[in-house]
Amino acid sequence: MPPKPLRSPARAARHDTMSGGVTHQPAERVTGVDTVKARLRINGTEHELDIDPRVTLLDALREHLGLTGSKKGCDHGQCGACTVLVEGRRINACLTLAVMHDGDTITTVEGLARGETLSPLQASFVRHDGFQCGYCTPGQLCSATGMLDEVRAGWPSVVTPDLRSSPSLTDDEIRERMSGNLCRCSAYPNIVAAIADAAEGAA
């Protein structure tokens, strides 16, 4: 057995990307698998992947690029812990392949803040204590970020009374629109308050 490297390939990749240039992640090759190239722009940095096409976007982020902020909860699109923004839209990173996102711009929870300045939603989650264990929080934050953009675009939800008018962001609307993000600590009341507060501040 070879000794375990002190720094995992994923960690090494993350370190290398700090320079901001195009990087090749150190792929752990599986014999007999045809790898596929894909170029992803993640949190402002270009990454060129050459990977097993079975790798989900979530595993590419976490295991190949060292971006472990996005969490793996159920790995089946049921819990929302893996939510990221692709071209500004929230999706479950566990239910899509990294190679399907060649050329896409992706924002993970690591990309929400501006340096040390939290995004309004992040600050609001802190202010309202919108978490307990914190495992679902990266997904909650990315999902809420995308959700507020959907509301700004006038998208209705199933609880919107009139499909022809623009929705107003009531607590019922927030709960319905965030139903794809589970919190097993059940911090929902504070999550709703945090989102409502952040939305009000942005309005």
Partner: peptide
């Protein structure tokens, strides 16, 4: 709008 979640409907 009655189906799935916001994330899934986006995909």
């Amino acid at each position: 709008l009655a189906g799935a979640s916001g994330q899934l409907r986006n995909k």
